[in-house]
Computed example of a mutant assay.
Amino acid sequence: MALPVVVPVGKKTADELRERMVAEIPTMRVGVSTDAGAHYGPVVTAQHKARVEGWIEQGVKDGAELVVDGRGFSLQGHEKGYFIGPSLFDHVTPEMESYKEEIFGPVLQIVRAASFEEALSLPSKHQYGNGVAIFTQNGRAARDFAARVNVGMVGINVPIPVPVAYHTFGGWKRSAFGDTNQHGMEGVKFWTKVKTITARWPDSELEHADSSFVIPTMG
């Protein structure tokens, strides 16, 4: 699970975050699945690689700033692999197609917000509502965000909202499938066949003789 969009509040925060990410991206290691030191591996198929690269091209056409372009990445010894280098967009807006859809690749998009309320409204209005996280030292802002955001899983200073499997995993809106979530007790309930038994044992033969075929609701 990964968060494909980051929403810094205020120009100063956005500029500093971008600077730090640009400096960090060259240190990321792309490798095969057996490489324990790799941060991530290839995408699953050639078609999926083409799809992710198509979304990068779409972002450029829509006017987003492509700060780091991961297209054309090649891993030595695995030149035919479905690898894509880390990619970073800045100045993405909610009207852009790459923001509206899920890219499912190593592409991070920066959507700048001028205020807390604007940042809160972005995931709340999005068609998908799987997971969201807020990073802050302000407890009041964190509680307000968690209570009001229209998303199924919320992390506070945690990048992945559900880090352990015994918590329920599932989103809202178009990120929801079926009528229950996965993992945790919700997952157990999904695989549980419910049996309901209603019983009544009369205290005496007289009571037994007077019994009627009426469901007892009280006493």
Rank of each mutant, 00 (worst) to 15 (best):
V9F: 00
D203G: 10
S33N: 10
I103M: 05
V164I: 13
V158H: 03
D69W: 09
E101N: 14
A147V: 02
P216N: 11
V188P: 02
L17F: 00
A36L: 14
V44L: 12
Q58R: 15
G59Y: 03
S212L: 11
I160M: 04
E65A: 15
K61I: 12
V194F: 02
D210F: 08
T192V: 14
E118R: 06
L88I: 09
D35N: 07
H183K: 05
I25L: 15
S115L: 14
A114C: 09
F83Y: 14
M1G: 12
V107H: 02
G54D: 09
V9P: 00
R148Q: 15
G139K: 02
A113Y: 00
W191G: 09
V92T: 05
V149C: 11
I56C: 07
F135V: 01
E101T: 15
N150S: 10
K12S: 00
W172E: 14
P42W: 01
V68I: 15
S124G: 11
V67K: 00
Q76S: 12
W191Q: 06
E118A: 13
I215H: 09
I134N: 05
G63C: 13
V158G: 01
Y128Q: 08
Q182S: 14
G41V: 07
G70T: 01
H126I: 15
R140D: 01
L3Y: 03
K195M: 11
V30T: 01
F169D: 05
P106R: 00
I84Q: 03
E57C: 12
V188A: 07
E207T: 14
A23G: 14
A38P: 07
L206A: 15
W201M: 11
H208V: 09
E101Y: 05
H167R: 01
V194R: 06
S204I: 15
R20D: 04
A38C: 06
G155L: 03
T136Y: 00
F104Y: 07
Y82G: 04
T196Q: 08
Q127F: 04
M218D: 09
V52S: 11
L3Q: 10
E101H: 11
Q47V: 10
N130A: 14
E19Y: 05
S33P: 13
M96T: 01
S124R: 09
Q137D: 14
Y166A: 03
E117K: 09
R148M: 08
E19F: 04
T180A: 15
